[in-house]
Structures are given as structure tokens and as C-alpha cells.
Design a protein around this nucleic acid. Structure first.
Lengths: 208, 208
DNA sequence: CTGTTAGGGAACGCAAACGTTTTTTATTGG
DNA sequence: CCAATAAAAAACGTTTGCGTTCCCTAACAG
């Protein structure tokens, strides 16, 4: 994912954003390969082909580094949410599928990072707050927003706009992908939506 | 100064099962306090008031130790499941609440251990298999069994006996407790059951 | 082209765990 | 009561990663 534009074939020394990208990549690769327990700054430096100093210059702690790498990649569900809500044509069900697909992509790529962050967040209130604010809440709000939009379009019962229903889809996807590390196909995600989510929220009671 | 009359208040040296219990306790305490990343055998030994050697004599690796501690405590959901299915009186809904309560208890006590195990299981197929076999599958089967029992009692639609519906409750509980580290009260668990699970599986369409 | 900035890479001392070994002692079975 | 056993505790050398510092040079600005 590094920027290989019109540059010469061997760029010997990266700087600034390019270097940070490489480090983020290395963090992901390293976390995925050895896990958080065996995760070291040294290994990240080697993998990113940089020196430890360049990393310490930018991040104070291991957690900072991991968190930053995570947010840099998946930081704003905002874009996709805006994008989704802007699409005034598609029915709620299809938008749910789109959002689910996105969640699957992220969970697949960043499963290990998510687990690591969840572990650390337990005893790092600052990290917990960051996750809550930048990941969990936007995701939750995205689903609530989708439900509200569905109400406006007459597809969703007004009393179905609640946190509980908003959480069903992310919970089931995350349960399988992040906790049990089982892949979830788009078809399975669609099945969750059609068999578990839509029947609960739909204005047409028997719908499936 | 030495002789304590009524009971031997100071048990100076534990052996066998008693020692292993103490070590398991220490593993839980340590994991909860410092997390898996900072988890060390030395700290466990100190906390269990034993020597490292006594631990190394019993477990080869850190993962072995953690896994064993976890299974020793929460190894068999079998008992509670048998207990639940044996109760031929209670309606499905109430058994779901009971099971949910149990899951909450376990997740609350062992949240950190579950996260740690989930992290490690990603790259340790043996551990993953153990978790799948001893934790995940029994839990899943418990819910499927409960659904089937509901069908037999005429409370649950026959076509609702499927893995997808069986996973809704554990997924939502686990999503909140284990991943987001938010406590879930019994009332909230009941709400999930009444608003999200029962409406989907119930023979009486409008029930809630 | 030149000076400044910042990255690459190696080396450093330090601290923490590792896993092992040894010594001492409590417990238990005979 | 006496061996045999196994646990507690400390000491061990080793490894590993920490975070820092150093020198040298590539990259960029002027």
C-alpha cells in the first residue's frame, strides 16, 4: 500500500508520511504474524526497514503505536457512513449488506489488531476512551443512523430505532470473526441480515 | 506465638491439587491485573507463593498454563447445560435467561483470560482446536439444544433451530462484555432475549 | 551546489524474564 | 520415627527487548 508513483525504482530512504505508512504496515504485519504478546518495536523497525529511533521519535509507547496504526487504517468509519447515508436510493437492507461487508473486510485485515487493542483497553482508560470514541461509537451510530433512515423511508418500524437492534449485526460479525477467528462470507453476512436483522426491524412483519 | 489452636491458619506448603488450584488462581489474578502482554511466570509464582520450578514442572509453556487455568475453571459448560435441559418445566425464555446469566458471570470473571486465549488461538492451532472443542462448540450446542427443546414444547418454530439463531445471544453478550468490556446486567440480557431472540424463534409471531 | 534536516543502522548499558539448578525443609508414606 | 518425596526459595547464566546515543549519509530546501 506504499506510494509507488513516478518515483525511481529504489527509493533508499523514506521520510515523513511515507515512512509512517511503512511503519503502520509493519505494525500490522508483525501483529498478525507474532501477536501482541511477542510484539516488539525492534521487529517493527526491521520490517519497516528503519531504525528504532525513528519509531521512538514518533510514538511514546507500544500502545500508542498500535493504536495509531489501527486508526490510520480504519480510523474513520465516517466516510463510508456518510457515503451510505447519502445514497438515497438503496433500500435499508442493501446498505446493511454494504456496511457488513466493510466490517468483514476490516475484521479480516485487522483482527489481530482489534484483539490486541481490546486486551490493552481493559487497563488503559485512555485507550479505552479512544476506541470507544473513534471506533465503537461511530460504528454504533452508523447503524442507528441507518435504522432512522429506514424509518424515514417507511421500511423500518419507528420503535426499532434502538441500540439493541443496532448492535445485532456488528455483534454477530465480530463474535465470529474477531473472537472465534472464523471467516464470514458476504453470503453469510447477508443471511444474518435477512434472517435476524430485517425480520426484527421491518415494517412488513412477515418479511424475509 | 506459633501454635494456633482451632485451625492450622498457616498452611506452609501446598501440594498436588491444592497447589495447582493456587496457581490457577494466581494466573487469573495476574492476567486480570497486568494483562497477557505483561504476564510472566515469575509473577504467577510469587502470587501463588510457590517457586517457578513447581510451575515449570507442570506446564511447558505460558499458553499451556493459561489454557489449563481457563479450562479448570470454565471447562465444562456441560454441567449447566445438562442441568438446564433436564428442567422440563421452565419455558424456553427462562432457560435462555439462565444461560445468559451464566455467560455473563463467566465473561465478567474471565474476560481477560478469554481475550488472551482468543489472541493466542489465532496462531496456535492446537489451542484454537481446544477452545473450539471445549468452549465454543459446547456453548453453541447448548443453545441449539435449547432451541430444539423449545420446538418439542411447541414454543419455538421448527425452522428456527439453526446455528444462526443459536449464536445471537452469545454473540451480543460477548460483543459487549468481552470485546467492549461493558458490563451487562441481567435485565439487559433479558431485554436482548425478549426483544431480539424470542421474536425471531417464537411460534407466536407477535410475541415479545 | 551547499547547508540543514532527518533517516538508517549499529552499538550501548540496563532491566526483566527466561528456564535451570541447587539447597533447604515440610510433608507424607512406610 | 525415618526415609523418600516434592515444594519453597534463592542463585544462576543467558537471552531479549528496552530506550538512548552515536555516526554517517540520503533527501530536501534555498
Amino acid at each position: 500500500m506504499t506510494a509507488v508513483a513516478t518515483a525511481p525504482a529504489i527509493r533508499q530512504r523514506k521520510r515523513g508520511a511515507a515512512l509512517e505508512d511503512a511503519i503502520h504496515d509493519a505494525v500490522f504485519a508483525e501483529l498478525t504474524e507474532v501477536g501482541y504478546a511477542a510484539f516488539t518495536i525492534e521487529a517493527v523497525a526491521v520490517r519497516a526497514k528503519t531504525g528504532k529511533a525513528s519509531i521512538y521519535r514518533r510514538w511514546e509507547t507500544k500502545v500508542d503505536l498500535v493504536m495509531d496504526a489501527f486508526l490510520a487504517r480504519f480510523g474513520g468509519p465516517d466516510e463510508i457512513v456518510g457515503e451510505l447515508l447519502a445514497d438515497s436510493e438503496a433500500p435499508t437492507r442493501d446498505l446493511l449488506v454494504k456496511l457488513a461487508t466493510r466490517i468483514c473486510e476490516v475484521s479480516d485485515e485487522a483482527g489481530e489488531v482489534i484483539r490486541a487493542v481490546a486486551c490493552e483497553a481493559t487497563r488503559d482508560p485512555e485507550l479505552a476512551a479512544a476506541v470507544e470514541q473513534k471506533v465503537h461509537r461511530p460504528k454504533h451510530q452508523a447503524f442507528v443512523g441507518l435504522l432512522q433512515r429506514g424509518v424515514d423511508r417507511g421500511e423500518v418500524r419507528p420503535d426499532a430505532v434502538c441500540g439493541l437492534y443496532a448492535d445485532i449485526l456488528p455483534a454477530m460479525l465480530t463474535y465470529r470473526m474477531v473472537l472465534n477467528n472464523q471467516p464470514v462470507t458476504e453470503a453469510e453476512a447477508a443471511q444474518i441480515i435477512d434472517k435476524a436483522v430485517m425480520p426484527l426491524i421491518s415494517t412488513t412483519p412477515g418479511a424475509g
